[in-house]
Design a protein around this nucleic acid. Structure first.
Length: 428
RNA sequence: GCGGGUAUGGCGAAACGGUUAUCGCGCUUGGUUGUGGCCCAGGAGUUCUGGGUUCGAUUCCCAGUACUCGCCCCA
């Protein structure tokens, strides 16, 4: 029988990779806290309605949107969350967080699921760092979200970062723009790929980020949404730009950056690694002033971003950023079984209780000292404590320094081993 | 759902239409009785599966499967 295999699109995060993850997560957490965000973890599973929201037949929706849906015994559907924002807003609404000081600034970490085919950096289970500011319309909140997103990468050590920025308008001005875009593309139907002709009917904004050939040329003459914004959206956009410029933060207006669903409003942004170019999108976010209402809450403005840890780690490796190594035991305790093993166990737990990382040699029977020392040598051990019959009879153990340029081994009274190691390790 | 690429021991590679398929790393055992890193000797691999071509295939062809990259979708 062949071994059970990991599901396609899912991954095992091995110890060597996990240190990258921990690094990203510690930087992100530290920044979020410094910005005054509080952690809130919504559940992994939510009602399908949270994500489907009146988009016609729910089953079509979650099949089309590659969602992991589970049928309950009463015939209703629940889903593994495909993203965080909806759950965060639901939590805000359900927990009456509008009665807290506004805005409410929240962050979280966790897995999200999309039933999609695997490609570079995209998995069926991916892990996100997510931040939201709820209950605030000030573009300074948009700025805060953007700066927080970029700062995570900056702190990790990314060197060439910039924003791609656009506005997606609001229910007042977006329809007018969509019509203008449709009119323009309708005049050039013959130049549209089949897939884009489909999109023209279903979701014309998506044509803006089409990957079909010739789109750069065709879209060069297309209308830009920033020329179609209503007064409110235009002011918001300009205020945000003024703040970015005040901070000297590089950004490019990218009229092809869009959101197709209508509860998205105003700001849309991505953080790009400008060295990688068009494929360099590291994370994205934006404003969604219509979402709370769409899920049945009272109108609450919101802005946020989600950052995929996998993508951040991939970039770290590309940038050759090495995360710090986790602490490892520096003391090794070797023995020869029998009474020496009992003494070794005792010493090991004395050291561990004192907060000293210690590795005990395992051996069901007597094990050769060569083998034990070879084991110790595989780890960053600075002192080996050897509990031998001879020393034990005299109430002593051997302490053998193992770091480079260390001195000779020596014997030391067993009852004083902890103090001796504390002293030696303090100097070493 | 659609399309491209790749499939050799834990990992990275090599080889050839034909006797026991090679190397490095790693793992593991041992090198006299209680001691690391070097060195030496030994140990572990049905060349993804199933067909086909052939006297004979790991090597050629086909299918399947897996992995991978891209498209669709991206809240």
């Amino acid at each position: 029988m062949s071994a059970v295999k990991r599901l396609p699109g899912f991954q095992d995060i091995l110890p060597e990779d996990r240190v990258y993850w921990d690094y990203v997560m510690s930087k992100a957490t530290g920044l979020a806290q410094r910005y005054g965000f509080l952690r809130l973890d919504p559940p992994v599973v939510e009602s399908i309605n949270l994500f489907a929201r009146g988009n016609g037949e729910a089953s079509d929706f979650f099949v089309n949107k590659e969602m992991y849906a589970i049928e309950e015994s009463d015939g209703s559907y629940v889903a593994l969350r495909p993203e965080f924002t909806a759950g965060m807003v639901r939590a805000y609404v359900n927990n009456g967080m509008h009665s807290r000081p506004q805005p409410v600034k929240l962050y979280t970490f966790g897995p999200a699921f999309r039933r999609e085919r695997q490609q570079a950096g995209r998995f069926r289970q991916h892990t996100q760092f997510d931040c939201e500011i709820l209950g605030e319309t000030d573009p300074a909140a948009d700025l805060e979200i953007m700066m927080l997103a970029m700062s995570v990468f900056k702190e990790i050590g990314y060197s060439e970062l910039e924003f791609q920025l656009n506005s997606t308008g609001c229910k007042t001005c977006k329809p007018g723009y969509v019509q203008a875009l449709k009119d323009y593309l309708g005049d050039h139907l013959d130049k549209l790929a089949e897939i884009d002709q489909q999109r023209l009917k279903l979701n014309p904004l998506r044509i803006l980020d089409s990957k079909e050939k010739g789109m750069n040329e065709l879209l060069a003459g297309a209308p830009h949404i920033v020329d179609h914004l209503c007064e409110d959206c235009e002011t918001h956009f300009n205020d945000l730009r003024a703040m970015l410029e005040k901070l000297g933060t590089p950004y490019k207006i990218n009229f092809r950056l869009v959101r197709g669903i209508d509860y998205y409003t105003k700001t849309v942004f991505e953080v790009w690694d400008s060295r990688i170019g068009a494929q360099g999108s590291l994370c994205g976010g934006g404003r969604y002033d219509g979402l709370a209402e769409a899920i049945g809450g009272s109108s609450t403005p919101g802005v946020g971003f989600g950052l995929g840890i996998e993508r951040a780690v991939l970039g770290m490796k590309a940038e050759e950023i090495t995360p710090p190594s986790p602490p490892e035991p520096t003391i090794f305790v070797a023995h020869f079984g029998g009474d020496t093993k009992l003494a070794a166990v005792d010493i090991t737990y004395q050291l561990r209780s004192a907060g000293i990382g210690t590795r005990l040699a395992f051996a069901r029977d007597r094990r050769s000292m060569k083998s034990q020392m070879r084991e110790a040598n595989k780890y960053p051990i600075s002192y080996a404590i050897i509990v031998g019959d001879g020393e034990l009879a005299e109430g002593k153990v051997t302490i053998r320094p193992m770091f480079e340029g260390s001195g000779d081994q020596y014997q030391h009274p067993i009852e004083d081993v902890l103090a001796e190691i504390q002293k030696a390790a303090g100097n070493g």
